[in-house]
Nucleic acid binder design. Structure first.
Lengths: 207, 207
DNA sequence: ACTAGTTGCTACAGGAATGTAGCAACTATG
DNA sequence: CATAGTTGCTACATTCCTGTAGCAACTAGT
């Protein structure tokens, strides 16, 4: 089990001291900032951004791979929390869609780099699988509620949804205000459901 | 002007020999294949994929940066050709939209890595600027033709369009048949214009 | 066939990044 | 206050990658 631990802990049963915990957080946050702008940045650069010595980074993360891995796990956990906060399984479909979107947009913006890395860490895989499933379920509920066309492929719907979120996250500020998040989420949901076409929905199907 | 030349040429006025030309193409194609799966891959790895010696790669491309730069330029040129092949400025808006989408999907799939790199090479910047402009113009024409809602922000429309193309390109085979491309393009355009929502376009706006 | 371009191979130099070790100074925690 | 964890610093080993050079064998273009 210890194989899956990415961060280094002092002793077998020992807990980390509070300041060390803070250091770890600082390093992860710094790594996200630096790597999102320069994916190949060195440990030196990350350490500097975090305000610690390079050796300290190596004390907490055995290798560069470990650091990135921890980063993806952290982002995945944040993502899961954001999705769950939107109550995708219990709230009315369209309400849930809006809430989930707003929450995910914030996380996606904050952990831009980490969310873009394909990780095979079991925890990350689990979260992505679960999230995908929740997404499909949500669209199914929306369909049953008559909000989504019956013939829409859930897989395609998910892809489109992810794509729209990605697009919307692009032009968000680094720390968007709640109002901005709401507006962006509304735009995403609106585009997702009605598209950009004019009123007549059959116009372009004439051919 | 020689500063902007990425590939190395033998003499001032001399043309490259045919076999050398083939080698350059092979290296670029190999680089795309390798880097799309492993962005940090070494020159050694790329050379092996291309079936040439590592030193030969360095003969044709002064540095790793040069290689990637050439790759982005090549991809940009392919993209421009693909867009123009769709006659975005002259064909009927919805026809053009469909044609451009199909052509771009193929290129996007083939040059997955190169299209994802942010390059500041003047040629790449030019193509992206022009393409963006053509995209906006196309949407404006579509709007004037009554195919797109009048209140849609062209910038957002472009982002959504790019996002959908990206999403659609994800689940395309490596070498998709024309029929697959057409189907994928149709799905993109349909989703773009009508979204995934049910018939009643005002349902989700009730709140 | 002749010429000049092209390539594989080997060898080498240099740099950059990674990862480790030890020690002194500091600090959270009880 | 005493203990043990934490960190900065310096130093070092090592590995990996990049980029260059020279030479012999091969080959396209004429």
């Amino acid at each position: 089990m210890r194989d899956h631990d990415t961060e280094q802990t002092p002793g077998p049963g020992r807990a980390r001291r509070a300041d060390a915990e803070r250091t770890v957080r600082a390093i992860l946050a710094a790594a996200e900032r630096v790597l999102s702008q320069e994916p190949g940045a060195t440990m030196e650069r990350i350490a500097a951004e975090a305000g610690v010595a390079r050796t300290t980074v190596h004390r907490r993360f055995a290798s560069r791979e470990d650091l990135v891995s921890s980063l993806t796990v952290l982002a995945a956990q944040q993502l899961e929390a954001a999705v769950l906060a939107g109550r995708p399984d219990s709230a009315p479909p369209l309400v849930a869609l809006h809430e989930v979107t707003a929450h995910v947009l914030r996380i996606k913006r904050t952990w831009r780099f980490a969310m873009g890395v394909r990780s095979d860490h079991p925890e990350v895989v689990r979260v992505h699988t679960d999230t995908r499933a929740r997404c499909v379920t949500l669209f199914r509920r929306a369909r049953d509620a008559g909000a989504v066309r019956p013939d829409v492929d859930p897989d395609w719907a998910s892809r489109v949804y992810y794509g729209l979120i990605h697009a919307a996250a692009e032009d968000l500020a680094e720390e968007p205000a709640p109002a901005e998040l709401d507006a962006a989420a509304a735009r995403v949901v609106d585009t997702l459901l009605t598209g950009l076409g004019a009123g007549d929905r059959t116009t372009h199907r004439a051919d």
